[in-house]
Design a protein around this nucleic acid. Structure first.
Lengths: 334, 334
DNA sequence: CTGAAAGCGCTTACAG
DNA sequence: CTGAAAGCGCTTACAG
């Protein structure tokens, strides 16, 4: 691969001049420019981003890092798409670190991205008091948190109104006549879980329905746990008439158990999932879901990060996007 | 963030010595080492990967690039998981470029990864004569292709026996008594599409069943096209009794149309999809599918790439993994 | 408008 | 066993 030096030699100019035409900052004599451009073309020259990054000052590295808990989760795939698209449009490249709910691995990716000199990072904190991310903040990297905030820290965040979203879903179920409503929650330590539980409790309370503790099942946010906990729920001597599943992996797991047992949705049990998927209508029956747009969250987070990169003194803000209840056919009136 | 120089100053040694303890290559006096290690700890020093990469010779950059056509496709998500896991275990970081079936974007990511001085790349070529990847090969980067090979080029590839996989699926359908079998194919220009079509044709021919051209529908490999083409198929005056969908996006799209129309699977129509998903059992009925393990492909490709990075003169090889027909409940005997 | 030179943070022969 | 120095490929004041 050709270097600046080789281009300079071929064009009979100094490397400084080549650099100038590349970055077209300072004024360059049109003839000189033409010579250089020819040399660049002839040699098929591509600037070395590593050298550029090492040399240049902040916000010109055109690189951001994304640290996520679980790429298996379709929600995060949407987030990635949103981030990647706006990054690409702004000529930024994104590095993705998938930490699989493992804080050690999260730390490693955070460290690597720092030593890769990224301009900034978008992260979904492992939990509300994520020390690893605090360190990154101390090192003055631009950071925006998604999905979850950080307790007592002034940081950019893009999230969704989880409590309200769940509240609406549960009220909908109640309006259909359901009283025995189960909730398979996400991992207890993630802030979103607490918010969703709160929405659930608030709706039940508002309508004077007592919550049966047997019907609240904390999962570890995985497909398998969704399947298992749904089985437990179905085996209860007084099973629920409806179930709210706190993320799409859990929903899918629960659905599997429901079908395996030969239960009918919505005749035997109604179900609402948090997180809509682009193929929710391919489920049978089509799933009623609380939609949060991962794509939108990714887009917003990326724009916010770029803003933070270009004007570091910019004050932090918190964007809370609304969710939307998409009523399809997985719930019935009883 | 602390630099080598600061560590050296604090430990009262030269930067060369610090570098030595970091890379623990040459022998270092234990006392000196201890001093340096303390300084590293005190300063919370993290080596700058950018500088390391610029300086070091090949295969020590610990960075690979992955260029994929569509992160929305669950198959590629599995591939990413497989790659990421083995990369992580070997202390490599992966950069992911999603080119969304856009060759211009593919070229851009390929260029960027080259100028990021990656040790190597894993790519799913846009098609069999992908010029962009040829250029990368010319520049002597280690490359392994997945899912699809490159015509007339000696390159590492990890793929699956598409023809055989489809052949088996169609024979299974035929054994159930189906004759009017539709095929919604992938994008015509991708090699896997041709292979899958071949498997289809071979099975039909072997059993002396004439192919009705009306039943072969080339899609653009997307969810939407799967839905649309399925609608066309269902509207035929003589609709198929079974449909084979050539990738999981198409399958999901087709399923959506089937359910929308109130058709019953498998009573009204049988369906087999290429690509299994971890939540195929959450579909109703559970989907019969040709499984190719994206995770396995990713793992193999990553190991192969690492091997190629460490011993560049190593001869290229082509790994063809078998597929597996997972019989569940979406097909019936007629 | 252009060039010579310093320097980003490292690694690695080369001396000692 | 350790240090001084060169150099990876760039960008950017500083002169001219």
């Amino acid at each position: 691969m050709a270097s600046l030096k080789q281009v300079a030699e071929r064009a009979n100019v100094s490397i400084a001049t080549v650099s100038r035409v590349l970055n077209n900052k300072d004024i360059v004599n049109p003839e000189t420019r033409a010579k250089v451009e020819n040399a660049i073309r002839d040699l098929n020259y591509l600037p070395n981003r590593v050298a550029q990054r090492l040399r240049s000052t902040s916000s010109k590295k055109k690189l951001i890092g994304v640290v996520l808990p679980d790429v298996q989760n379709p929600f995060y795939v949407d987030v990635i798409r949103g981030i990647e698209e706006t990054a690409y449009r702004n000529q930024f490249v994104v590095m993705i670190g998938n930490f699989s709910q493992d804080e050690e691995k999260e730390r490693l990716y955070l460290d690597i991205f720092q030593s890769e000199e990224v301009d900034g990072m978008i992260v979904a904190p492992a939990h509300g008091r994520d020390q690893n991310i605090l360190k990154v903040l101390e090192n003055n990297f631009a950071v925006v948190c998604i999905d979850r905030g950080l307790a007592d820290v002034d940081v950019d965040v893009v999230k969704v109104d989880n409590e309200e979203g769940v509240f609406g879903a549960i009220e909908y179920l109640i309006s259909l006549g359901h009283k025995r409503i189960a909730h398979i929650t996400g991992m207890p330590q993630i802030p979103t879980t607490a918010e969703r539980v709160k929405g659930f409790e608030r709706a039940m309370k508002k309508h004077g329905i007592k919550i049966d503790p047997d019907l609240i099942r904390p999962s570890n946010s995985s497909y398998e746990s969704g399947a298992e906990l749904m089985a437990e729920l179905l085996s209860l001597k007084k099973p629920p008439t409806a179930v709210f599943t706190a993320n799409n992996l859990i929903t899918l797991g629960a659905l599997r158990t429901i079908h395996e047992r030969g239960c009918k949705v919505p005749d035997d049990i109604s179900i609402i999932g948090f997180d809509d998927m682009y193929w929710s209508m391919s489920l049978n029956p089509p799933l009623t879901a609380v939609r949060q747009s991962g794509y939108e969250i990714g887009k917003r987070a990326a724009s916010m990060l770029l803003a933070g990169i270009f004007t570091p003194q910019r004050s932090k803000r918190q964007v809370v996007l609304p969710t939307e209840l998409i009523v399809r056919k997985s719930c019935r009136r009883i």
